[in-house]
Design a protein around this nucleic acid. Structure first.
Lengths: 164, 164
DNA sequence: CTTAATAAGGATATTTGTTATCCGTAATAG
DNA sequence: CTATTACGGATAACAAATATCCTTATTAAG
């Protein structure tokens, strides 16, 4: 069980977009170069973000992507779900219904509540999502300022700025 | 991102094994029939549980599997990790190192701390695991007694008993 | 001692999902 | 008008999950 690599790419791209000046757009090509990932495939992840309303894209020269909301209003969960989907990591296939001892029970009888095993797994999934929803891009930016060398932050900001 | 179906199978099998009498063994064939899943493939999941020390298997006629510890000492996390592995769902490929602005930085400089994005993702993974580690097979059994019709519980127990 | 039943595990398909590339279309700034 | 871009469809390459088959060693029961 492993998240797609596009989740990692999408998060890093959003972190960069969060540092953009107002009304500036950064194109896929530069996001791909900055992170050393294939442009065409990264494009799919950015389209997913766009479809989810997290970024918006604009066409033509000087086009590209920017955040669709303020960095404080975008959580890790928003981004992860945009790329990975909202379905729980645990899928209950109701194998309890295969129990031969149910025999003559009318189908569905005793299934008033979801499978107890599934409920535990789903609760864990919810805990995961709650944790992800507790961190915004704004908070990530703050952490980066504290932990990434100032020189690198400055250089990167300039590199990006020159391409918007 | 989806857990393997063997996770679901393993959890259901452990729930059944938790109801076994002392020194009784239930073979793969019956666990497969009870859940309506292919015996040969289920066998792989049971082997994973065995390798993790959650169940132990014994050979020969009247052989099969039983829990290796009391139901109260086995958590959902134990079972999930036995089948799915202990690796985090998020794998950091360190794409921050591909930033061309790092240019002449000595390799590894500024990487004293793990990637901030990875740390958030790993914290969520930990929250998921913590949730799973909070429920034991004993607690599951209690829930089942409350939510599954008594008649079905009784029939199933008899079905299993007859095969140990 | 013999026989049947079992876990264990290797080898190998089959199917599905991820990863990636390629190309065509429409929109947009200069 | 032209170059640049997002968008989206089609498809190929690769990896992982799913499943089956077969051999071996061990054990209980007759």
């Amino acid at each position: 069980m492993q998240l797609k690599n596009q989740v990692e790419w999408a998060l890093h791209c959003c972190a960069i977009l969060a540092g953009l000046g107002p009304n500036r757009y950064l194109p896929t090509r530069d996001l791909a170069e900055l992170h050393g990932v294939p442009k065409e495939y990264l494009s799919k992840a950015l389209q997913a973000l766009s479809h989810a309303g997290i970024v918006d894209g604009t066409l033509g020269p000087s086009g590209g992507y920017r955040l669709a909301r303020t960095a404080g209003a975008i959580t890790f969960l928003d981004i992860v779900e945009a790329v990975e989907g909202k379905q729980s990591s645990f899928v209950c296939t109701e194998i309890r219904r295969n129990n031969p001892c149910r025999g003559s029970m009318t189908p569905g009888a005793g299934d008033a509540r979801p499978c107890a095993i599934a409920r535990v797994m789903w609760a864990a999934d919810q805990a995961w999502r709650k944790s992800l929803s507790g961190v915004t891009l704004a908070e990530l930016a703050k952490t980066l300022e504290k932990t990434v060398p100032a020189s690198l932050l400055k250089k990167t900001a300039a590199w990006v700025e020159a391409r918007t």
